[in-house]
């Protein structure tokens, strides 16, 4: 039963989880707190994509071959700005408080995002734009484009964090803010940049998923849970670990659901998480001790 369709499905799901987990892990590194609204920002990104795509189709005459790709920069930009607003609301007022306070403020933001989506867009699911038109790349074209886009973004993020001055500053302020400030890195600005980046990534995830998986106000919780699990299994705060964790979850879910049942896949995933934490309290790929959540 496990054929190419299953593998592509697992890849698509893995790409989705990985993008959600990346933004999640960036914020953990920057402020040491779990962003419980990360999944809701994925959902919000989906709605931004829906709005942008409908604007595009109303205001352009040419038949767009790849509407998703065309609006991608727009979505990234819009979500980065929203990310700045998010940090101003949920992080800056609480920066001198324990990470738990930020954790709770993100829960509040999550509630507001979910309910705003319901109030302004309604409860009906909506379909976002395709990445590339089906005529161009066959039935699986969108899914393959989704996986490819995720891979490109993960590679780009890796390059950004490891290969640029900006990335080094970002990592330095995450690892030791006081030391970073002492050597002249503008830590606050770096943290704000991290928020913008993390939420832009969530937006990208939202755009990529909005066609394949539709978008609904209540979608956030699932993405947040999967991101949380991916990051924990991958080793708290480790970016590559988060991607590996996300892929592992997606493959596990898809394979168990294909062989046995979806309900069991979901249940076993949580049992697996508990088993892993029992055997390895520091996570599957984790080595170092993390900070307080």
């Amino acid at each position: 039963m496990i054929g190419s369709e299953t593998l592509i499905a697992a890849g698509g799901l893995g790409a989705a989880y990985a993008l959600a987990a990346l933004g999640f892990v960036l914020i953990i590194n920057a402020v040491g707190a779990v962003n419980f609204a990360q999944g809701d920002f994925v959902m919000a990104g989906g709605y931004v994509a829906v709005v942008a795509a409908s604007w595009l189709s109303q205001n352009t005459d040419v038949a767009v071959i790849a509407p998703g790709l065309v609006i991608l920069p727009l979505v990234l930009l819009a979500m980065a700005v929203i990310g700045l607003g998010f940090s101003a609301l949920a992080y800056l007022p609480l920066r001198r408080r324990p990470p738990m306070a930020v954790f709770i403020s993100t829960i509040a933001i999550g509630i507001m995002l979910r309910q705003s989506a319901n109030a302004f867009f309604g409860a009906a699911p909506q379909a976002g734009p395709v990445m590339v038109a089906p005529g161009l790349a066959g039935n699986n074209g969108h899914q393959l484009a989704m996986i490819a886009a995720a891979l490109v973004v993960i590679a780009a993020l890796h390059g950004l964090l490891n290969g640029t001055q900006f990335g080094r500053h970002l990592r330095a302020s995450a690892q030791d803010p006081q030391m970073a400030a002492a050597v002249g890195i503008p830590v606050t600005r770096m943290i704000l940049a991290t928020f913008a980046l993390a939420i832009a990534l969530a937006g990208l995830a939202g755009l990529l998923l909005s066609h394949q998986y539709l978008v609904q106000p209540d979608d956030g919780t699932t993405y947040m849970l999967k991101a949380y699990i991916a990051v924990t299994l991958g080793g708290w705060g480790r970016i590559n670990g988060a991607v590996a964790g996300a892929l592992a979850i997606a493959v596990f879910e898809t394979v168990v659901a294909t062989l046995v049942s979806q309900v069991l896949a979901e249940m076993l995933l949580y049992v697996l998480v508990l088993a892993v934490l029992w055997v390895r309290p520091q996570g599957l790929f984790g080595k170092i001790e993390g900070r307080r959540a």
Partner: peptide, 12 residues
């Protein structure tokens, strides 16, 4: 579950 988005396993 209403949260499931990937129908390929069930359809397979």
């Amino acid at each position: 579950s209403p949260k499931v988005k990937d129908m390929v396993p069930a359809l397979s």
